[in-house]
Design a binder for these strands. Structure first.
Lengths: 256, 256
DNA sequence: GAATTCATTCGATTATATTCGTTTTTGACC
DNA sequence: GGTCAAAAACGAATATAATCGAATGAATTC
């Protein structure tokens, strides 16, 4: 999409002033505030600006817009799941955190746990948990994927093979009606499978939006998993299947 | 969640002053103390601050004060060295970047190189080069050291053993008169030695402050190194020795 | 134990998303 | 050129959501 002249000017004003306000811009261009809002919204979608209440600021850094948007998608549900998972991870334990925005929310929720050992192939998780001094962090080696800060590939799987942890927190791109965990990227699936083998218990985190999606590669079945933590009740047939498998389904209560 | 402008400013005030008080901030921004409290609470939840009674202090996680200071120390010299090194790294090549603030400056200077493969055990380097889409990044696995974002340990050394690169850019804590590269941490030294073995050519980066320092562990001798890039001429005896060894000494011209 | 400071709730204000109808622009065709 | 239909841009109205400040009682510091 091309920028309108007004949008270009908004952008240069924003960059020059460090911040623009909706009202000021509406007066400056003599248009309605809704029009300005639309412009700002589009500029934000294109990654040029960040919306703030009442205006916008030029975006600094952060390479990946699509990923930022994914992170905001159902942020409430993810926070709820994260809190529920964190409550089920005891202090003084060792865990693996994998890729995915939900997993990153779990890392946020673990900021105040003490004496954790966290092994992760997610740069965002590592950066987040840096702020928790009571947490030893092992970063898995591998090729860095810009789109989400993930470390993937054969070397990553090998790395995980050297550990054995209490709990693995596994993300997934999709969760189908048969209870299969699915993903888009085969390299990532291999890593996930290696992780599954190295954990005494596996918790899968997946918000309800994952139930309506599909993906080509299969990671595992919920039958191999100890808990599924989600934010809305499962469809009855899947819930029954989980019960048969002994996979505990945790529906996280919303956090206020 | 995105930080509001006020939250960002609170954060930078906190980092600059070492501490912020609720009342002061409320007066400074001309808002109610409850509003400030809310901001501080959110910043604390995000791991940026720690609440104390009446205010907050910056959380020292990865935002290591000592490290930040080291990074600012002789920043000009480091930038000069970085530019000189970047000029000597051709595009379409594979390199290793190790720990150290000077190495991080090199990463900064490589932001516009194309088609690089960079292998690093430095989280800061990885985060920086994320912004360069023409650069494939491999992150070495290992234990994350909060003080400098370094990945160290036996696993890290093993990881590097699987690669062979054109150039390794090696940092060092100290450089003594005999031309020995020294470091404080034995685990890091092991990694550095593993790297030395995996590179067709090694460039050592060390600004002049490293010449007056010492450290207990020996990484290698300059005789094993192709180039030493520094920011001020070496003492004559060391310069002569480097010449004998065939180690080219590059004195980087200051950048304007 | 007195005084701050804090967390929480509530309501008021303001900003936002969304929808809809109007105006303007565009481009194709006669 | 002129006409028309489709598309885009815009503004108004509405419901939703975010922000802020005041009030309350609990927790804390001294």
């Amino acid at each position: 999409m091309n920028l309108s002249p007004r949008q270009s000017e908004i952008l240069s004003i924003a960059r020059a002033m460090g911040r623009v306000m909706v009202d000021d811009l509406a007066r400056h261009f003599d248009v309605a505030v809704q029009t300005i809002r639309r412009d700002l919204g589009e500029l934000a979608d294109l990654g040029h600006l960040d919306r703030i209440h009442g205006g916008a600021v030029p975006r600094q850094g952060m390479v990946n817009i699509a990923y930022e948007r994914r992170r905001k998608l159902n942020a409430g549900g993810k926070a709820a799941i994260a809190a529920a998972v964190a409550a089920r991870i005891p202090e003084n334990s060792s865990i693996i955190l994998t890729l995915g925005t939900t997993t990153e929310a779990v890392a946020q929720a673990l900021l105040h746990h003490r004496n954790l050992t966290v092994i992760t192939n997610n740069m965002n998780v590592a950066n987040t948990l840096c702020a928790n001094p009571g947490c030893e962090i092992m970063v898995a080696g591998g090729a860095l994927r810009r789109s989400d800060g993930g470390l993937v590939g054969a070397l990553t799987a090998e790395f995980f093979a050297q550990f054995k942890v209490d709990i693995a927190v596994l993300g997934a791109s999709a969760l189908d009606h048969d209870g299969d965990l699915l993903d888009y990227d085969l390299a990532e699936v291999r890593v996930s499978r290696a992780i599954l083998a190295q954990a005494r218990a596996t918790y899968v985190v997946a918000d309800h939006t994952k139930l309506t999606r599909s993906a080509p590669a299969r990671i595992a079945s919920l039958s191999e998993v100890a808990k599924l933590v989600t934010d809305q009740p499962l469809p009855p047939d899947l819930a029954r299947r989980c019960a048969d498998w002994g996979c505990e389904v945790v529906v996280a209560p919303p956090v206020p």
